[in-house]
Amino acid sequence: MGILEVKGVNKRFGGLQALGNVNLSVAENTVHAIIGPNGAGKSTLLNVLVGKLIPDSGSVMFDGQSVLGRKPHEINQMGISRVFQTPEIFSDLTVFENVMIPCFAKRDGAFRMHALESVFHEKDIKAQAEAMLADVNMLEKSHMVASSLSRGDKRRLEMAMCLVQDPKLLLLDEPTAGMARADTENTIALLKEIRTKRGITMAIIEHDMNVVFSLAERITVLAQGTPLVEDTPENIKGHPKVREAYLGEAQV
């Protein structure tokens, strides 16, 4: 049994079948990539996993518990963190504050009335945030307002915000989309490091095959809302159905 078990999930938007009978099993301690052409339903699947969308039918079990019907913050507290396709960060706050907030969420839960304590006295939280920012090479940008960061740095910041929670499952929605080549290489290196150092289970949606094949241990190919095949990267590369449905299209 994987840490994440998706069974028979369907989701329609009006007449459009965005997800049709999706089965997916993500094994603990692996990097599982989900690939597929634009509009295949990859983001929709992630939205179902984090409680943003409720599927029409099917079940989603995480760590032995159903996530369906739970609110996004409850699902996060179960141990799922998500990096969005367009970075969702606290733009008006400093980089350091951005990373402190998930630390508080991890330590204090979904709500705590700490109105008369001082942020400056939270030594543990500050140390955690500092260590995380050092890991992603952003320590010298700690005091910048997040909105003034470059696009690549915003993504890196969002990743740091998710990682600092030490999630059981990290969901990444096209983490290198719109990145310059160098930034993409950096991100691959960062994700590899996370993988070896922290052993976090990851489900990653990605367009860039270079990224997918350098990270993934399992790959699921999604087309028109339905999984075509699931296999190791080596087998996927040679799979005729995949070449036809996806790789071929991408290489033209």
């Binding site: 984090v50 609110k71 996004p72 913050h73 996060n76 507290q77 963190s81 998500r82 969005f84 969702e88 960060i89 606290f90 907030i101 998930p102 508080f104 969420a105 991890k106 839960g109 979904a110 709500f111 915000m161 929670q165």
Partner: peptide
């Protein structure tokens, strides 16, 4: 949005 997906109610 980020608040909710960071586990905060």
């Amino acid at each position: 949005t980020r608040m909710s997906y960071t586990g905060l109610n």
